[in-house]
Nucleic acid binder design. Sequence first.
DNA 1: AAAACCAACTTGTACGGACAAGTTACGGTA
DNA 2: TACCGTAACTTGTCCGTACAAGTTGGTTTT
Lengths: 254, 254
Amino acid sequence: MSADQDNSQRRPRYLALAEEISRAVAEGAYAVGTLLPSEAELCDRHRVSRHTVRESLRVLQEMGLVARHQGLGTRITAATAPARYVLAMDAIPDLWEYVKNTELKVVRSKLVKARDALTPLPGDQIASWRLLEAVRYMKSGEPIAWKQVYIDARYDVVSGAIGKRTVPIYSLIEQRYGVKTQKVRQEISAIAIPPDAARALAVKRGSSGLAILRHYVSTDERVFEVTMSLYPANRFRYSVELNLERGNGRSLAS
Amino acid sequence: MSADQDNSQRRPRYLALAEEISRAVAEGAYAVGTLLPSEAELCDRHRVSRHTVRESLRVLQEMGLVARHQGLGTRITAATAPARYVLAMDAIPDLWEYVKNTELKVVRSKLVKARDALTPLPGDQIASWRLLEAVRYMKSGEPIAWKQVYIDARYDVVSGAIGKRTVPIYSLIEQRYGVKTQKVRQEISAIAIPPDAARALAVKRGSSGLAILRHYVSTDERVFEVTMSLYPANRFRYSVELNLERGNGRSLAS
DNA sequence: AAAACCAACTTGTACGGACAAGTTACGGTA
DNA sequence: TACCGTAACTTGTCCGTACAAGTTGGTTTT
């Protein structure tokens, strides 16, 4: 038996092997980006079955240390298992909860070329995007956000529609076109509110505000919606709670 | 072959079985809290090997639908797989990457009662907290953040220490006292920068800024550190990328 | 009545084998 | 020189067998 074994409490061979490999990786025996020895080779070296080797590699994969590629090999992706924070809720605050308690009123709608957008848009600069300018109100009528929504013109679910909306647009796009949101890139910054938005929000131009830029990315890596939202200070707080998890929920501890 | 198979693109049997079981669970064929049929029984019913059944159950486990108990059985833990966003990086931007490229200079340090803190503190209002006032600089010397750090006085790792720091304080607390960070609650808002901070940041008082309030929570649910950071507009953008994952990182999509 | 034992059932670990599917590199041909 | 086909290598899927380890319930013994 090649892997260390403590008589008083026997560890499974696959865990012992996983630990041995992860230690070797941490010590630099295999550089990040390179391939581990093949499964057959690991069988020979450690005198275990392919089942045991595969089980070990699965554990390492769950820890985020390796990625397996059929036909190619097992690549080292990290020297030590990355610790990750997991968002402890089902969605970004204003994708769901927030939308439920407010109304979005579209006040302008037009087609624009990417290059003409006030907000930088990705990809082909002569591509067409549907721009919606909107104001979000509390049910009580107070304006809390000024928003520009750019929709890839191929998914023009709301062409020309002006008025109140209560369903997130990316959700409509998902339903209508079968596009799946895989990723949301988000950037938050402080800004002085520009004149157009200031009027709509009933605040002084140049007063403090929060800007949240979001790119909605589909499973085939395309940005299909871009939103820029402006919130006056004191009318909006963005809260999230993050939990610390290591690897992908799997560690070597038994 | 008992599980549906599409000729044009053959799905692995174990995935088809996993989907069949998850659909049955969602439809109420098995109540949450009860046991699934045993592995042997599932083999018989679906005419597949035990390996295939075990592989299916592992997928369901990864989705958070079932929990396996050696000697007992496989229990249904949820009717549908919880959907979660996972922060696609190792840490909140300024817990790691950001800290590496900047320096925090503590300019004031004193003990305060919770009730006297400028930032609201949780729990007992007569409890003592170590307050550090600090400025964060780029290596180039430009001030980018004004910060108040409140530390539960029981974990006074930096009592009175004024000067430059490059290691996150919560990390020092973890090392010194064995406290484990389990959760970080975070709130982002826009503010007009107050006078004290404006001076330290070399911006006009009242100009736009970003405020990030964080509560660091230990594994025993205690808040042991609270930080309030102020960033002038245009000097700081808070970027995150969120991936949609279902269950524990595993879905049925291939 | 309580404790010990045992059988039956269940999941976990480990082995072996076979073939499918993906990737890469090399040799032959146009 | 470029393209195509093939061989070799690799991981993925699926099957089977055997035994270890854990759980539970029933029976026997004290």
